[in-house]
């Protein structure tokens, strides 16, 4: 059972040879494959994180732009309303002034016509009373 002979050194040499061959054929190439894969996965992870950060940055930017646009549009509406009210007020004022003017004009004309009518009536009264007087005296 315990007979040592040349099997021992030959087996040792054979094993060392196997180490060298397997190192070249198995350990080195497959380790490289595994390390390359890890590097690839890490690279992809870094890229994905960068893209995520970029997307978040863009989303924030768009939200800011949106908020700004909303503020702008509210301001525009307010301004337009203000302008419209102002314009309406001026228009109303102008119309009222014109109406007032026309009324005054009409009143003046009315006054004049009344005056004229009263004068003609006075004249007629005078001539009629002269006639009546003449008739009574004559």
């Amino acid at each position: 059972m315990f007979d040592f002979d040349a099997t021992l050194p030959l087996m040792a040499g054979q094993f060392l040879l196997l180490v060298v061959v397997l190192n070249a054929l198995f350990f080195r190439p497959l380790s490289r494959v595994i390390e390359e894969r890890q590097a690839y996965i890490q690279g992809q992870g870094v890229q994905a994180r960068q893209k995520l950060a970029e997307a978040e940055r863009l989303a924030r930017q768009y939200e800011q732009e949106l908020a700004q646009t909303r503020r702008q549009y509210q301001a525009t509406i307010l301004q337009a309303q203000e302008e419209a009210t102002k314009e309406a007020a001026t228009l109303v004022a102008a119309a009222q002034a014109e109406a007032q003017q026309q009324r005054e004009q009409v009143e003046q004309q009315l006054q004049q016509q009344r005056q004229a009518a009263l004068q003609t009536l006075q004249k007629q009264v005078d001539s009629l009373s002269n006639q009546i007087l003449a008739k009574l005296l004559a």
């Binding site: 315990f2 040592f4 099997t7 021992l8 087996m11 040792a12 094993f15 060392l16």
Partner: peptide
């Protein structure tokens, strides 16, 4: 099995 022989195991252990 090769490991069934004392020569093999001693060779590996000495290595």
């Amino acid at each position: 099995a090769p490991t069934n022989d004392i020569n093999t195991t001693v060779a590996l252990a000495l290595l």
